[in-house]
């Protein structure tokens, strides 16, 4: 399930809803991304996330489909916020459930790595010295590319 929203989310309630009533779940993997207070050794006062409505939902749904293709998953939840956020605010939640831990943890890691480079969001940071757009990082590309090597494994799903 994909949710693109301005409002905050309740981590406990969202994760509980992923597993409630489904006793075949053996493991839940999750990642929560938050706004950090420092960037490039500068104190950040806010971060505004811009996105491409319509395409964002499509891209996130495609990422979910890719994860489900690669691993045997019972459910996937991606919540991504947009708008003005402050340090400490939650940005993104990825939750994956499976019968076993490996698929849940690996698919969660895969999703957050691919989100970094394939979800149409752009971040504007505000600090004492003004506003600046967050640049894409090579290390994020490397992290995303790491999963490309396993693309051929979708035929034999990992559990």
């Amino acid at each position: 399930m994909i949710k693109v929203q301005e409002q905050d989310f309740d981590i406990g309630a969202e994760l509980a809803s992923l597993t409630d009533g489904n006793t075949s779940v053996g493991g839940l993997g999750c990642f929560v991304g938050l706004v950090r207070d420092m960037a490039n050794e500068e104190q950040i006062s806010s971060m505004t996330l811009e996105h491409y409505p319509g395409m964002t939902e499509k891209q996130l749904a495609a990422l979910e489909a890719e994860a489900r293709d690669r691993w045997t998953l019972l459910d996937v939840l991606i919540i991504h916020r947009y708008g003005r956020l402050e340090p400490g605010d939650r940005i993104v939640l990825v939750g994956t459930t499976s019968a076993h831990r490996e698929a849940a943890l690996e698919s969660c890691h895969f999703l957050i790595d691919w989100l970094k480079t394939k979800a149409p969001f752009w971040k504007l940071e505000e600090s004492d010295t003004g506003e600046s757009w967050v640049a894409a990082r090579d290390s994020d590309d490397d992290a995303a590319d790491r999963w490309s090597d396993t693309a051929t494994q979708s035929e034999q799903k990992k559990v």
Partner: peptide
């Protein structure tokens, strides 16, 4: 749509 490299997550 034209845009810079994406920075999601």
């Amino acid at each position: 749509a034209l845009f810079p490299p994406m920075t999601g997550g």
